[in-house]
Design a protein around this nucleic acid. Structure first.
Length: 571
RNA sequence: GGGUCCGUGGGGUAGCGGAUUAUCCUUUCGGCCUUCGGAGCCGAAUACCCGGGUUCGAAUCCCGGCGGACCCGCCA
């Protein structure tokens, strides 16, 4: 069991016991971590019920608590009941746990619960741009966190191969001659195809004939013309290959790809229509389109109607999305959708409609706001974009430049390999660092920061710690708390002991931005320890300090792993 | 017009009822290489959008402004 958890349990028991003694059993109280104590119980919350001054309550309670278990003291201060934890036990148990669990340190046992995380799912009409780059990185980090929390996680990409946009792209690929696409594009499937997409859009706007051809394709598509559907699907497959390459570059692998068109082909979207028509909330417009009215479901605004068929009876995106989610819940216990903020209302609609369909499950949404450029929002169609591929290239080349300037001793291919890890680390760290719903304006220098609160800062500490261990050679583990009594050592160990709680918060509460913050804290504490305390040159406690260095490295590795960031041995 | 989210030092960001010091990064200024990697360490400077209210206590909750983002399709 986690040592901090045990301490919390001890505090719970102590406070409950003391409350019992002062004649207020079952009174609720809260615990918080603070700088003043290992765990504090604010007594303000109890003052109303007990009709007493918080300070008095704290003192009364303190008087009834004898240090026991992991509690070494319970002191009343300013209305708080401050508990301190047995530091020697904390030190020893934490280090031992890290040594025995290694890469599993911080992880919870498997719980058998299946979670499906749908993320990225960008339209297959162009490369991933920085505006949406938060999606795969948030999704992947959450997936990694939940795996560590013991869940059985599957990630999934929903390929939107239905609709006008993909038809335009397919038309372009079929009808535009290669030499008339003059744009300079990188040699990568998605970039090559997007040129056709843009050109097709341009021609459609200028030429009514083209517009008509595209409408014709769309009609055939709606009628279920297999040739058209296959054409589009093939184009989307090619595009997807390019997208997968980009995702792989940032260490994102997606377990499953589900195609929207499948829900048209297998009739499940039609089935949703049939079932929705039976609902009491359902109505029909004069033109014959079907809708459900969601005004009883907390949906506000001038239009609460959620249309699920066109007047000609064909299905809409949202209808297929319903079929998709019903399908998902056949395969999973919980579903999480990582979505752009523009999907907020749509997601609410989806959940209400799922309820009407009798689904016991609804997806949990995790929203992020788009990254914009200083000059405004990005648009693939207009070509006002910074592609994720460009960001990756720039990050890697800046990292390479950096390495060249400090490590001319390394062979060329080694420098390239490190530059990749560092550049990608900077990108991923920088994105999960901030709360997903906070607006982000893209600036090169901020996105590619290698100092301070950054991925490379943590990687640097990892490499530095590794260097010490390499120089040390063989040594015996020593977890004796008496050998690690320095304040910097104690501070570092304290932070190392909090990793499990951080992983839990990241996964269970979907607060992944606590991970980079935690990693940074570990790195800072190590750097402080490093500059204040000699390791190799120390006398009696060399082994203990080396053990601490090794434990720090293990935790750092686990944090980086959870963030999908690689850890170079040297940099 | 209605809804949702966001507003914290010069820039970025954490905290989202609690402890007379509001976090971290960047920036600026001043220190630290005869110690294990200076992508580092130490110190200083500068902030809760505005106005009301609730509370013993508000950056945090409520109401009203202001500013920004997103949404309110028989688009996806």
């Amino acid at each position: 069991m986690d040592i901090r958890q045990k301490f919390e349990d001890d505090v719970d028991a102590a406070v409950s016991g003391a409350l019992n003694k002062i004649g207020a059993p079952c009174l609720k109280f809260i615990k918080e971590v603070s700088d003043m104590a290992d765990l504090a119980v604010p007594c303000f919350t109890m003052s109303k019920e007990l009709k007493a001054d918080p300070k008095d309550i704290a003192e009364k309670l303190a008087a009834h608590i004898e240090p026991s278990g992991l509690i070494t003291s319970a002191i009343a201060l300013n209305g708080y009941l401050n508990f301190t934890m047995d530091e020697a036990v904390l030190t020893e148990e934490t280090l031992k746990k890290i040594l025995t669990e290694g890469s599993g340190y911080g992880s919870m046992p498997r719980n058998g619960i299946k979670i499906n995380i749908e993320h990225t799912s960008t339209n297959p009409t162009g490369p991933i741009h920085v505006g949406r780059a938060r999606n795969p990185i948030i999704g992947d980090t959450l997936a990694r966190s939940l795996i560590k929390c013991g869940y059985d996680v599957q990630t999934e990409y929903y390929v939107n191969d239905v609709g006008k946009q993909v038809v335009i792209l397919a038309w372009g690929v079929k009808n535009i001659r290669k030499d008339s696409v003059t744009e300079e594009e990188r040699n990568k499937a998605d970039h090559k195809l997007v040129a056709y997409y843009r050109e097709a859009n341009r021609r459609m706007e200028e030429d009514d004939n083209v517009k008509e051809q595209i409408s014709e394709m769309l009609r055939k598509f709606e009628d279920g013309d297999r040739n058209i559907i296959n054409d589009i699907r093939q184009t989307a497959e090619v595009m997807l290959d390019g997208l997968k390459e980009t995702l792989s570059d940032i260490n994102v692998e997606i377990d499953r790809y589900t195609w929207e068109s499948d829900f048209v082909i297998d009739g499940s979207a039609k089935d949703v229509v049939r079932r929705l028509k039976e609902s009491k909330y359902t109505g029909r417009t004069e033109d014959g389109a079907w809708y459900i009215d969601l005004k009883d479901f907390g949906i506000q605004g001038k239009n609460t109607k959620f249309t699920f068929t066109r007047s000609d009876g064909t299905t809409l995106y949202t209808t297929r999305d319903l079929a998709y989610h019903l399908d998902k819940f056949k395969r999973t216990d919980r579903a999480i959708d990582v979505l752009g903020e523009d999907q907020k209302l749509g997601s609410k609609h989806l959940c209400s409609a799922l309820g009407i369909l009798g689904s016991k499950n609804i997806p949990e949404a995790m929203f992020y706001s788009f990254v914009s450029l200083p000059e405004g929002k990005m648009s693939t169609r207009k070509g006002v974009v910074v592609y994720l591929d460009d960001l990756i290239d720039e990050a890697v080349s800046r990292a390479l430049e950096e390495i060249r300037s400090r490590r001319s001793d390394l062979p060329e291919d080694e420098m390239h390999s490190i530059a990749r890890k560092v550049g990608i680390g900077a990108i991923r760290y920088n994105i999960v660092r901030v709360h997903p719903e906070k607006q982000l304006v893209f600036k090169w220098d901020e996105a590619l920061n290698f100092d301070g609160n950054s991925g490379p800062y943590i990687q640097y500490v990892y490499a530095r710690a590794g260097s010490i261990l390499r120089k040390a050679g063989k040594y015996e583990f020593d977890t004796d708390p008496n050998m690690l009594a320095d304040e910097y050592e104690r501070a570092l160990i304290r932070i190392l002991s909090r990793f499990g709680g951080t992983v839990r918060e990241a996964g269970e509460e979907k607060r992944i931005h606590v991970l980079p913050a935690y990693g940074h804290k570990v790195a800072v504490a190590f750097n402080q320890f490093y500059s204040a305390v000699p390791v190799l040159a120390s006398d009696g406690n060399r082994n203990a300090r080396l053990t601490l260095v090794e434990c720090t490295r293990t935790v750092l590795r686990n944090v980086l792993d959870c963030l999908g960031i690689e850890y170079p041995e040297e940099m």
